[in-house]
Computed example of a mutant assay.
Amino acid sequence: MERGRNVIALNIGLYLTELKQEWSRKETELLHKISKCDLLIIDDLGCEKISEWVLEKIFLLIDTRYRASKPVIITTNLFYSRNNEKCGIYSTFGTRIKERISEMCFPLCCKGESKRKSGTEKFMDFLV
């Protein structure tokens, strides 16, 4: 962004909610912007309840970026591997989405203690 590039960062859950509310016109506008922006960041992929509709919309999002040959950053708590493991990108989204993500992205695993604390933990830290 400091170099004058435009970036779209979206939360996948909010994206899907927006599409449900103003479906056809909004989807066309969003996909056009997604195909043109310099960088797309998809946050929290896989947190949504998976239905056929959700799979279709996520495929269109990923495929739009794939066909535009532009970079994308995806964050997820799903496992990334070539296996068909449970809680993985492949088992959650299937071959079409997994293959496009595999061609566009380099997986980086970030491990460590969660920075998010429950309300009780935050309150206890505040008291100390």
Rank of each mutant, 00 (worst) to 15 (best):
G13R: 05
G4V: 05
N84F: 13
C105K: 13
I101H: 00
L61A: 03
I73K: 00
E2S: 14
S69N: 14
I58C: 04
D63Y: 10
L60H: 15
R65P: 01
I42Q: 00
E27F: 06
E52N: 08
S51Q: 09
A9W: 13
S91C: 05
N11I: 08
F79Y: 12
L10C: 05
L31H: 13
D125C: 13
R3S: 15
L30V: 09
Y15V: 01
D38Y: 06
E121P: 10
L39S: 06
K57F: 02
E27K: 15
I101K: 01
F126Y: 14
R96S: 12
F79G: 03
I62K: 02
F59Q: 10
T95N: 13
G4N: 14
I58M: 10
D125F: 05
K33P: 01
L19N: 01
N84C: 08
H32N: 11
C110Y: 09
L78W: 10
Y15K: 06
I89D: 01
I58N: 01
E2D: 10
D38Q: 13
I101N: 00
L61S: 02
H32G: 09
L31D: 04
K57A: 01
W53C: 07
I74L: 02
F126R: 14
F93V: 05
D38A: 12
W23G: 01
M1H: 11
E2M: 04
N11C: 10
L10K: 00
K36A: 10
P107F: 09
I41V: 15
I41W: 08
E29L: 07
K49S: 12
Q21T: 02
P107W: 05
T17I: 07
G13V: 07
I97T: 07
R82P: 03
I8D: 04
C110H: 12
Y15H: 12
G94M: 13
L108C: 13
S81A: 09
L55K: 05
I74A: 00
L127K: 14
M1Y: 12
K26V: 01
G94I: 10
K115D: 11
C87K: 08
N84Q: 11
S69P: 00
E18H: 04
C105H: 09
K111Y: 00
D44K: 01
S114F: 10
K36S: 14
E18G: 07
E56F: 03
S118G: 15
E52P: 07
I41K: 02
E99D: 15
R67G: 05
D43N: 02
D43P: 00
K98W: 11
